[in-house]
C-alpha cells in the first residue's frame, strides 16, 4: 500500500476568507503537512508562489485585487521561470458547469466545491501527486490535458485538428532520424 507523505509537500493556500484558510490549513496539518503557506488575495498569492515555490496551490475563485482565475492564468505561462506546471486545486463555492469549464480552460488541475470535506481534499491532492496529467500547449491554451482519459468515444469539442504524430519541431525530427539509423 502506498501513502503520500504530506510532510514532504510545500502547500500554498490562497483565499481571502481567514476562516476558510484556517479550515484548509487544519485539514492539511491533519494529513501530515508541515509547511503550509497562506495568502489572502491573488496578488499576494503570486508573490508567495514566486518566493516559496510551493509544490501545490489551493486557490479560491472569488478574491479581491485579482481573482483565482487570473492567478492561475499568470502562473500558467509556458515561458515562466517559476514552475508553470505546478498543480493547482481550485476550491470554490461556484459549482455551475460553466464555472468548472472556465476553471479548466484557465489551466486548473483539480476542481473542488465547497463545502469542503477532508476526504475530497485528500483525494484531490493525491490525484495531483500520483496521477498528474501531461500538459498541452496550443496557440490559446497551456495547462493540464483537458481530456482526463484517452477514450475512443470522445464526444467533446475537437480542438486538435491533427492528432497524428507529425513532428514539426526540427530538433525532434533530428532525434527521430538519429533513432532510425
Amino acid at each position: 500500500m502506498i501513502r503520500v507523505d504530506f510532510s514532504k509537500l510545500r502547500i500554498l493556500i490562497v483565499d481571502d476568507n481567514a476562516h476558510m484558510r484556517r479550515i484548509v490549513r487544519t485539514l492539511l496539518h491533519g494529513f501530515g503537512a508541515r509547511e503550509v503557506h497562506e495568502a489572502e488575495d491573488g496578488a499576494s498569492g503570486l508573490e508567495v508562489f514566486t518566493s516559496h515555490l510551493p509544490d501545490i496551490l489551493i486557490v479560491d475563485w472569488a478574491m479581491p485585487i485579482f481573482d483565482g482565475i487570473e492567478l492561475v492564468s499568470m502562473i500558467r505561462r509556458p515561458d515562466s521561470v517559476v514552475n508553470p506546471y505546478v498543480p493547482i486545486i481550485m476550491l470554490t463555492g461556484h459549482s455551475e458547469k460553466s464555472r468548472v469549464m472556465r476553471a479548466r480552460d484557465a489551466g486548473v488541475t483539480e476542481f473542488l466545491c465547497k463545502p469542503i470535506s477532508a476526504k475530497a481534499l485528500h483525494q484531490r491532492v493525491l490525484n495531483c501527486v500520483l496521477n498528474p496529467r501531461p500538459f498541452v500547449k496550443t496557440k490559446d491554451y497551456f495547462g493540464p490535458d483537458r481530456r482526463r482519459s484517452q477514450s475512443a468515444s470522445y464526444t467533446g469539442p475537437e480542438r486538435r485538428t491533427n492528432d497524428d504524430a507529425i513532428v514539426v519541431d526540427p530538433s525532434a525530427e533530428r532525434l527521430r532520424e538519429s533513432v532510425r539509423y
Binding site: 500500500m1 501513502r3 503520500v4 509537500l9 500520483l130 500538459f135 496550443t138 485538428t161 504524430a165
Partner: peptide
C-alpha cells in the same frame, strides 16, 4: 511530443518520487 497544432509536455513527476512511501 510536438504535433502540428499542439505540443504535449510530460514534466517529470518529482512530487511522486519525493512524497510517496510504501506502508
Amino acid at each position: 511530443d510536438v504535433y502540428a497544432d499542439h505540443v504535449v509536455l510530460r514534466p517529470p513527476n518529482r512530487l511522486k518520487a519525493r512524497a510517496v512511501r510504501h506502508v
